[in-house]
Design a protein around this nucleic acid. Structure first.
Lengths: 247, 247
DNA sequence: AGGGATTTTGAATCAGATTCAAAATTCGGA
DNA sequence: TCCGAATTTTGAATCTGATTCAAAATCCCT
């Protein structure tokens, strides 16, 4: 039945509209000022229609977090497919993450918020599952590189599974984001260049995990070169000089 | 003027009352159901009185996060003063963190929430500063151990300052919390024992940072022994068998 | 074109945070 | 001890913004 199909398509299209509008409101006015009525109005729909798509504000937030992931998924897939040593690619994930965090800081904070118990638990199960599913490819990309690394002898898993290995750099990245975004926890004077530092620590961690070739993580120049390469050649993003600092 | 003093004291006392009540509401009914009126009622005060202490709900939340830190500060100070190699103490911080996270999971989530842009930015500056200040001793404890490690030759800073070094394990811990608390990001089957894994990764990270004596991070028995020791002898906490799993 | 089904609308409702004028209490002095 | 000014407490009223739902509009099929 083609009528139904069209409806379906229109529905999907409008859902996109709403998500885009919500994103815009957040970017322009901050997460703090996101209101359901603003989102609806911006699309020239009534609030009620918005509620046809999202059961609640929390639902919308979680949907947004899941949707926003897609860009990251693509970036991660590029890194995964990059012709480079497994170790560089693993670091590349961190670079990708930080580049995107830099480009869409508001949306990055949104994520932090959406994963908060208060929001997450208030969203309907189906939505949570959908958002979780949207995350899966990220993990897959990471795990694929771990697999390769093991296969080509760059890495011994030493009793862990690939997923557990991934958790290490992943935690480091997530933690660093959380800390940096709350400017102050690590005081400003302390780490002027948190992301450069993150890369260095990641490198140290990979050394600790025995990921060959072991590198000198104090070689800033090499890390900067890697970041630049990933950014421009793999992600095709403009290099943000800011990446090195916190401006 | 002693009248004023008394007032001051009463004020402080009541602030504690309110904070305690808020904590209880959160533990019993979840962060989701925290309402200003409930907190006031539980203390037999009118809402207006509560608002004499906290400008807004966000203010209360941030205050709570700052207050809740104290327990952690004490734990960290114990670990810092523990007679053990610097490396063990650094891992000890992670153990302390996870023990407390296990004991007060609700309050741990509160923290995550309070540091969210939406909440944090809505709290008055003075409160944010106070909460930040409450965190400072945590950092100091960590940094003190780094200092000692450097002094006794366990660690070369290799161009970093102590604060930057601390950021590495700290990020790992924060990130792991964030991931584990959102059960699902790392799928359940993947890491049955996230905290044991965390400790192993921390150990690997310290190896990567060149923190002597370098250890075999795959030696589970040793890590478990360390965790148990920190828990019982340093923190005087009962050992929670659950710590090793995710029940 | 007609009329039942579906969708959209937005004013009304509801929840809960926040305010503030009135009531209560405290305080210092007579 | 009593009085009136100053301070504090109170909680009903207000306000904000999410959510609902009955009516209006639109769609779809015959």
């Amino acid at each position: 039945m083609s009528t139904k199909d069209r409806r379906q398509r229109e529905m999907a299209h409008r859902e996109h509209l709403f998500l885009k509008a919500a994103r815009e409101v957040i970017q322009q006015q901050g997460l703090l000022n996101l209101q359901m009525s603003k989102v609806a109005e911006r699309c020239d729909y009534a609030v009620g229609t918005l509620y046809q798509h999202f059961q609640s504000k929390e639902d919308l937030l979680v949907a947004l977090a899941g949707d926003e992931i897609q860009e990251r998924v693509q970036a991660f897939q590029r890194v995964r497919a990059w012709k480079a040593p497994t170790r560089d690619r693993m670091l590349g994930f961190a670079v990708a993450d930080m580049v995107l965090a830099q480009r869409f800081p508001e949306l990055f904070r949104l994520q932090q918020f959406a994963f908060t118990e208060v929001i997450w638990d208030a969203a309907p199960l189906s939505r949570r599952q959908a958002s979780m599913a949207a995350y899966a490819p990220l993990r897959e990309s990471c795990e694929a590189v771990v697999d390769e690394a093991e296969a080509c002898g760059d890495l011994d898993l030493r009793g862990l599974n690939k997923s557990q290995v991934c958790l290490a750099p992943w935690s480091l990245v997530v933690g660093m984001h959380a800390i940096v975004h709350n400017e102050g926890v690590a005081d400003r004077s302390t780490s002027q260049e948190p992301y450069r530092l993150l890369l260095r620590h990641c490198s140290a961690l990979l050394n600790g995990l025995g990921w060959r070739p072991l590198c000198d993580e104090t070689d800033h120049a090499a890390l900067d070169r890697l970041a630049l390469t990933v950014c421009e050649e793999v992600l095709h993003e403009k290099w943000l000089p800011c990446l090195a600092c916190r401006c």
